[in-house]
C-alpha cells in the first residue's frame, strides 16, 4: 500500500497539513519497501485559484492507494481524485504524520471517499 500524507514537514514527527490543495508537502509512505518519499508542493502557493485541481492531478501521478489529510479535498479536487480508486481519510489535521498513520491503522479516521 502507498499512503500519501498532506504534511508540513518531511519526517514521521512532522505536523500534518490540514489543507489538501495548498498542502506544503506530499509525504508518501510505501508500506512494502518501508520508505518515505517527500515531494514539495510549493508551486500551488502562488496560484490564485485552482490549487486543488493541480494538486489532485499531481497526487494521482504518484498513484497512492490511500490519502490521509485534515479537512478533506474540495469539490473540484475530489472530482479529479474520483477518476482513480484512491481512498481519502480525513480528520488528521492536528496530528503528526506518525499519529495520523496510527489513527488510520486503528480505524479512527473518517472516510471522505
Amino acid at each position: 500500500m502507498k499512503i500519501l500524507f498532506t504534511a508540513k514537514g518531511s519526517e514521521w514527527s512532522s505536523p500534518m497539513d490540514a489543507r489538501f490543495g495548498r498542502m506544503e508537502m506530499m509525504v508518501i509512505y510505501d508500506e512494502e519497501s518501508d520508505t518515505l518519499e517527500v515531494l514539495p508542493n510549493s508551486e500551488t502557493e502562488a496560484m490564485e485559484h485552482g490549487a486543488g485541481l493541480q494538486t489532485a492531478k499531481k497526487v494521482l501521478k504518484h498513484s497512492p492507494d490511500i490519502i490521509i489529510t485534515g479537512n478533506g479535498a474540495g469539490g473540484k479536487a475530489l472530482d479529479i481524485l474520483k477518476t482513480s480508486n484512491v481512498k481519502i481519510f480525513i480528520g488528521a489535521g492536528d496530528m503528526s504524520i506518525k499519529e495520523a498513520y496510527e489513527a488510520y491503522k486503528n480505524g479512527k479516521l473518517t472516510e471522505q471517499l
Binding site: M47, H49, A51, L53, L60, I80
Partner: peptide, 18 residues
C-alpha cells in the same frame, strides 16, 4: 493561466467557474 483546465491521462476537464 487560471488553472481552469486539467489534462488527465484519458480526458480533458474544464472548470467553468475558474
Amino acid at each position: 493561466n487560471f488553472n481552469a483546465i486539467i489534462d488527465l491521462p484519458n480526458e480533458i476537464r474544464v472548470y467553468p467557474a475558474l
